[in-house]
Every structure is written in structure tokens, then in C-alpha cells.
Design a protein around this nucleic acid. Structure first.
Lengths: 222, 222
DNA sequence: TGACTTTAGTCACAGAAAGTGACTAATTCG
DNA sequence: CGAATTAGTCACTTTCTGTGACTAAAGTCA
């Protein structure tokens, strides 16, 4: 049977996350002539195209570059409205360091806490994506993907605090980090104006002998 | 624009998992006239149908009853072969206690370790599903969904050992279980032939004051 | 019956890890 | 210079893990 104009009835949507100042932010674009003004970057999949490849393309079209880390969140359907007419949509999350991210024109970062109205289906994607990020925090190198390639331990701790929504104890944080063998010091320091200059580190995970036990941080109970 | 014969180009596939004797097993069915003989239960989605609802239907058609616990694994595509002609497929995992499961005719349990050849896409689904189950083991009530509604602590421990692929220490297991407030004793016992009769328990998660810290079991290093 | 086996369930202690406050170090500001 | 500020570490207490040995309640069989 010959296929003429095979309509691939699904879309690929990306939730591009960055850490902007003190909160997480998500990249949105103006939605053409819809009821909702803003939308996640998306496009209809082409026949035969790999899901990841398509998602990468969507992200590149929005950001100018492909994100380093990307993961599928899942499929969304259930008749909820979507900018496309697609029956279902496959969502991906990606993490982008804010320092290096320069979105194409028409794309704008919005704090997650204060998003404009989205289509119901994309709203669900955002929620699922943030939950996915939170839940993998101690397994995947999430925090590092939101930071530039070198960073101070204070910056790293602040990033974890942002992601967890909790304050962490400094000594404890560093002890846990050491146990996880995730960072190594560079030979540089950075003087941030006021106090003692901070050692710079880079992400450099080492193989562990026994099973990887994730990073278990100690919370600060205030 | 009128839709005539809107071809929904995706399938819903279910990975139905049970604990059979000493290993995990998955329900497969004969695949009609394909190169591969066996396949996961699947069907093409109808337009406008909710994903979960469709997955439930697939499971019910295979098992005779809807599973208690079910979760989406993700979307699979990438041009890998599938029994349907669908561009992509959405996979779900479900857990079924083996005692109460009586598959419809044509469906057979296969040990995960020894599956017959499947289509590449379904093979990927099985792998992703088992990984998903493993990774949520300490967050979701996975083990309980594979057991009958009342069970002994030894049975529960054996289930965890099966899922983790590790031996656990008895005292430690029970201590962790107590800390997690997941089970409560019934007023029944069960005499299993040989030794002292065991107390029966049921799954009955209690709200914790502080954050739910999952169940962290202590492994036995032999 | 009573010693022996088998499975259930608990205890107690050593060692490891987490929670925390106070300390030292290296800067800038005035 | 001293006060303020941020980085980095120490040391101590509390809690949690890892583990062997113990008690309890059945069945088995001479």
C-alpha cells in the first residue's frame, strides 16, 4: 500500500529549563493566533524521524544550540487542548545553563512559579517535567547542567537549594559531595567582590567501586 | 474540515508484570503472522481516547481484570519495528499479583530473563519498564502490588529480594519497614507447615509527619 | 514424650553516616 | 587597622545501618 501524505498525528514538545536568578524558568514562545498567547516550543514529527532527534531539533530552533542533557518525560494526550491538532504529544525536558543560553527572538524565559496560561496539555507537560527533574536530582547530574562548566561550591549548593526548595547545611553538603565523587577542583579561584575568594570546581564524576548510592544531602531544619 | 477515517498513528502497549515463583514474568500473546511469534498486548488508539483508559482496556483484554497499579513508561518510536504499522507507541507498565491473575487464553507468562524474540520496539519497552519498576521501588508500593492483599513479612522480604536482585538482612528489613509505616498487622496468622506460624500483614501506608523518606533497606553483603 | 529441625520474630551492640554549631581563612570596605 | 563578608573545616552529638545471636512457636520422628 502506497502512503500518500502520511499524517503523523503527534507533536514533539520541549520543556527547556534554566535557573534564572533565584528560580527556575522555562522557555516559551508566542503562539500564533491561538486562544493562549504562549506555548512551549513544539513541532509536528516527520515520518520516520527519531524522537530524540526531533526533540533536539525543536530545542535547537529555540535556543540556537542543542542542550547537553535531555530526557523524555512521556506522552500526553487525553483530548486536552494543544496548539497543534495532534492527538498526542511527546514531551522532553532539557536543562540549560542560563549564562550561556541566548534564545532566538520570539522566545522568552518565564519563571515556573509565574507562567502565563498555556494549553492544558502543555501545562501538564510542564508539571510532569518539573516533577521529573526533582525526582532525578540525586541520580542524574541535573544541578551541573544548569551551571556553567566551572562553578564554586557555594553556587552549586545554591542550585541544589533552588531545585530542592530547601536550605542545606554547608558542612554537610560538602561532605555528601565529597562522598559522591562528582566534582574536582580546577586550579583557579574566583573573587566575588566581598569575602574570601572561592575555589572553582568542575563536574567530573568518578567511577565508584560499589553501587552508586546517589547523593543524599542533609537538610537543614530551621 | 471533516475527518474521514482519521488514522491515529500510534499504538498503546502494556508490559504486564507479575512475580512467578522466583522471578519476574511478563505477559505475552501470539502475534498474528509476523516474523516475531510473540508480542506484548497492544492495540491502536482510538481518536479522542485517553491514554490511561486505552491502556487499561488493553490490560483488561489480556487479564480479564484491570490492574490496580499502572504507570506510563514513555513513548517509543525511532523507526524500530512494531507489530502495528504505528509510527510511535506509548508503553505502560502494570503490576499483577500472580495468585489472582488468570490471563485470557492465548496469553502466557514468560520469565523476564528468558523472553522469546520480540519486535525491537517492544523489546525496548520491556527493558524500559523493568528499569522503571526497579527505580521506583523505594518510592512506589511496587512490591505490595505483586503480592496478595495479605502477606507475611517473609513473603514481602522475598519479593523485595526478587525485585532488587539482592539478599536482605531480616532484622534490618523489618526495622526499615517499621520506619516507613507501610504495613499493619491483621489479626490473622498463617501456619506454613514447618515452623512457627507467621503474622499476616496488609499494605496500609500511614501519613508521616516529616517528608516521606522512602524505604531504604540495608543490604546483606554475603 | 522429648530432642531436633524449621521458620518467625527480636535484641543489642559496633560502626558508619547525618545534623549541627563553632571555629579558622582570606578577602573588601571604611 | 578593625569590622564585615564569604569560603572552608572541625569536632561533637545523634541517628541510622550492618550484623550475629538470641528467643518463640510450630512440626517431625525416634
Amino acid at each position: 500500500m502506497r502512503e500518500r501524505s502520511k499524517t503523523t498525528s503527534y507533536s514533539i514538545d520541549t520543556v527547556l529549563v534554566t535557573a534564572m536568578g533565584n528560580e527556575l524558568a522555562i522557555l516559551l514562545t508566542r503562539s500564533s493566533g491561538e486562544r493562549e498567547r504562549w506555548a512551549l516550543p513544539w513541532r509536528l514529527a516527520q515520518a520516520g524521524e527519531a524522537l530524540e532527534a526531533a526533540a533536539n531539533r525543536v530545542a535547537r530552533d529555540a535556543l540556537g544550540e542543542a542542550p547537553i542533557w535531555m530526557e523524555q518525560v512521556g506522552a500526553f494526550g487525553d483530548g486536552k487542548r494543544h496548539p497543534s491538532e495532534a492527538e498526542i504529544s511527546v514531551a522532553f525536558v532539557a536543562l540549560v545553563p542560563h549564562e550561556t543560553a541566548s534564545p532566538r527572538s520570539g522566545f522568552t524565559w518565564f519563571p515556573v512559579k509565574d507562567l502565563p496560561p498555556l494549553s492544558p496539555r502543555q501545562r501538564a507537560m510542564v508539571d510532569a517535567a518539573t516533577r521529573a527533574v526533582q525526582s532525578r536530582l540525586d541520580q542524574a547530574p541535573i544541578a551541573f547542567r544548569l551551571l556553567p562548566s566551572t562553578f564554586t561550591l557555594s553556587e552549586l549548593q545554591q542550585m541544589y537549594e533552588l531545585l530542592l526548595g530547601k536550605r542545606l547545611h554547608k558542612a554537610s553538603f560538602r561532605r555528601a559531595l565529597q562522598g559522591a565523587w562528582l566534582v574536582e577542583p580546577t586550579h583557579e579561584q574566583r573573587s566575588e567582590g566581598r569575602g574570601r575568594p572561592a575555589q572553582l570546581f568542575r563536574y567530573s564524576p568518578k567511577k565508584r567501586r560499589r553501587q552508586q548510592r546517589g547523593v543524599r544531602f542533609d537538610f537543614l531544619y530551621p
